[in-house]
């Protein structure tokens, strides 16, 4: 168990940074200032919460990496109003998103849709995780091979006792050298 401690720490570190990076924690822990003003809000709380949810998925096109929910830009305000007008008119969430997508393109969605030309973007993280696992497994297997090669020598009966004594002497010498190196 203690032998694997460094690996475990690294894995936990990756897990924590993944959770933070993916924004799973942010809504609860970090409160952001909202650009939404009171007069924009809809009276119906169910519709309003759908409007907020949609606004978080839509990019403000003039500030590029903010959602229209976060942005104070005029265009973001107009788009928030457009979302609410369509909600009041009885449109579904999917219909509103696809309507804005038809006017402004995929770019208006903060999460790019899974399509042929965005495949690399979506699959790259999975690829990197698999690559990391492959490298880790490869390194472990090599360590195991060196270990078992050592064991094979000690179990081999065809080695004479004189040779065995020489092997042991060399091993001790090697260990002493290692100790001196680490000091």
């Amino acid at each position: 168990m203690t032998r694997h401690l460094p690996q475990i720490i690294v894995i936990i570190g990756f897990a924590i940074s993944f959770v933070i990076g993916s924004g799973l924690l942010t809504p609860a822990t970090i409160s952001t200032a909202h650009a939404l003003t009171a007069e924009e809000m809809l009276a119906d709380p169910a519709l309003e919460s759908r409007a907020r949810n949609l606004s978080k998925q839509l990019r403000c096109l003039v500030c590029q990496n903010q959602s229209i929910d976060d942005s104070d830009a005029d265009l973001a305000k107009d788009l928030r109003r457009e979302v609410r007008t369509q909600l009041v008119a009885g449109q579904t969430d999917a219909a509103i998103l696809s309507d804005l997508r038809a006017k402004y393109g995929d770019y208006v969605l903060l999460a790019p849709p899974l399509a042929r030309d965005t495949m690399a973007l979506w699959l790259a993280p999975v690829g990197f995780i698999l690559l990391g696992i492959a490298i880790t497994l490869g390194m472990r297997r090599r360590a195991v091979q060196i270990d078992s090669a050592d064991n094979n020598i000690s179990a081999d009966n065809s080695i004479s006792s004189a040779d065995r004594a020489r092997i042991d002497a060399l091993k001790r010498q090697h260990e002493n050298l290692n100790k001196r190196d680490t000091r």
Binding site: V62, D74, L75, D78, L79, E82, K103
Partner: peptide, 13 residues
């Protein structure tokens, strides 16, 4: 006046 046509045309500035 309220920018509604702009949204229909995909205007962002």
């Amino acid at each position: 006046i309220d920018g509604r046509a702009g949204i229909a045309w995909g205007v962002y500035g």
